[in-house]
C-alpha cells in the first residue's frame, strides 16, 4: 500500500493561508467550501442560463442582438413583454417532439452500448496490477488527445463505400456490393459510442479500482460462481460508477450536433441539429433558446428530483 499523502501543500499550511484569514471575517470554513463552487456556477452558469431563458421569451428581430427587449421602462412604468409563443411553437410542430424523442432514444442506445463495451474494459483495467493499470488507463484516453475531427475522418475512411471495411468484406467474398454505412444511423451510434467511451470507462474505473477484494474472495470462497459473484456483489457495488458513466454518455449525447452532422444521414433528426438550424439558418435565437430550455427541463429536472429523493433517503 503506498503511503497516503495529499499532493501539493500540506493541509495545515493550506488552512493557514486560505481559510483562516477568512474565518476571521466571520465566514466558517464550511460556508467557504460551499461558496466557492456555488459562486463560480452562479456567475458562469446560472446568470448566462437566465440570459438564455430571457431570450427564449422574447421576439426575434433584425438588430444587434437579434431579439427584442423583454420590457420597457419609461421612468415610471415597467412594461413587460413576455412572449411564450416560442414554447407554443415547439408544441405545435411535430418536428421538435420527434427530434427530442429520436435524440433521447439514440443517446440511450449509445449509452447502453458504451456500457456493454466499457464495463469489461474498466473491470479488466481496475483489476490489473500496477503499473499495467496506469498504462491501460492512459491508453484509453490517449486516442482522444489527437483531434476529434481526425478521428471522425478516420471513421469515414473506414465506413465509406470504397473504404477499408467494405474492401475487406468484398475481398473475402462475404458481400458482393459495398454496404452503405456512412450517412446512416448506424454510423451515428458508432460515432457516439466511440467518442464517449472514455466517459463511460473512467468513472467505472474510479469505482471499480477501490472495490474491496475481500468481498469478492468471500463470495468465491462461499462457492459462488464468478457470474453469480458478478451480479450479486460486483455489479451492485459498482452501481455508482455505472450511473455516473451512463449519465456522462447519455446526457451530453442527447444534444450532440457534430457527430450526426458528419456521420449521420439526412434522416438523422437530432435535436442538436434542429437547434443549430434554428440558431444559424433561421437566426431565431428565441426559438433556439426555447429548444435548449425545454431540453434542460426534460433532462435535468427528473434527475434533480431523483437526487433529492436519494439525499432525503440517505438523511433518514
Amino acid at each position: 500500500m503506498p503511503r497516503a499523502q495529499a499532493p501539493g501543500m500540506s493541509a495545515p499550511a493550506l488552512w493557514r493561508w486560505t481559510a483562516a484569514p477568512l474565518a476571521r471575517l466571520g465566514l466558517s470554513g464550511r460556508t467557504l467550501v460551499i461558496l466557492v463552487p456555488v459562486i463560480w456556477l452562479l456567475v458562469f452558469f446560472l446568470i448566462p442560463f437566465l440570459v438564455v431563458a430571457k431570450i427564449s421569451l422574447s421576439e426575434p428581430m433584425i438588430a444587434q442582438p437579434p431579439y427584442a427587449p423583454l420590457g420597457t421602462w419609461d421612468g415610471l412604468r415597467l412594461t413587460l413583454d413576455l412572449n411564450f409563443g416560442n414554447y407554443a411553437f415547439l408544441l405545435d410542430d411535430p418536428l421538435y417532439l420527434n427530434a427530442y424523442v429520436f435524440s433521447i432514444q439514440t443517446a440511450f442506445v449509445s449509452a447502453a452500448l458504451a456500457l456493454l463495451i466499457g464495463y469489461p474494459m474498466a473491470w479488466y483495467i481496475a483489476r490489473s496490477p500496477e503499473p499495467r493499470r496506469t498504462l491501460l488507463l492512459l491508453l484509453v484516453i490517449l486516442p482522444f488527445w489527437t483531434s476529434f475531427l481526425l478521428r471522425v475522418y478516420a471513421w469515414q475512411g473506414f465506413l465509406r463505400s470504397n473504404g477499408v471495411i467494405n474492401n475487406f468484406l468484398i475481398a473475402t467474398g462475404i458481400i458482393d456490393t459495398p454496404l452503405v454505412m456512412l450517412q446512416t444511423n448506424f454510423a451515428v451510434y458508432l460515432g457516439i459510442v466511440y467518442t464517449y467511451l472514455p466517459f463511460m470507462i473512467l468513472p467505472l474505473y474510479a469505482t471499480l479500482v477501490k472495490l474491496d477484494d475481500s468481498l469478492l474472495e468471500a463470495s468465491a470462497d462461499l462457492g459462488a460462481r464468478p457470474v453469480a459473484t458478478f451480479f450479486h456483489v460486483t455489479l451492485p457495488l459498482s452501481m455508482p460508477g455505472v450511473i455516473a458513466g451512463f449519465m456522462l454518455v447519455f446526457v451530453p449525447a442527447i444534444g450532440e450536433f457534430v457527430i450526426p452532422e458528419l456521420l449521420g444521414g439526412p434522416n438523422t433528426l437530432m435535436i442538436g441539429k434542429v437547434l443549430w438550424g434554428e440558431f444559424f439558418s433561421n437566426r431565431d435565437w428565441p426559438v433556439a433558446s426555447a429548444v435548449a430550455i425545454v431540453m434542460l427541463v426534460v433532462v435535468v429536472v427528473p434527475f434533480m428530483l431523483l437526487r433529492n429523493a436519494q439525499a432525503r433517503a440517505e438523511a433518514e
Partner: peptide, 10 residues
C-alpha cells in the same frame, strides 16, 4: 448537472 445537458451552441 445542467452544464452536461446544455447544448454547446447555447
Amino acid at each position: 448537472t445542467a452544464p452536461l445537458v446544455m447544448p454547446e451552441v447555447i
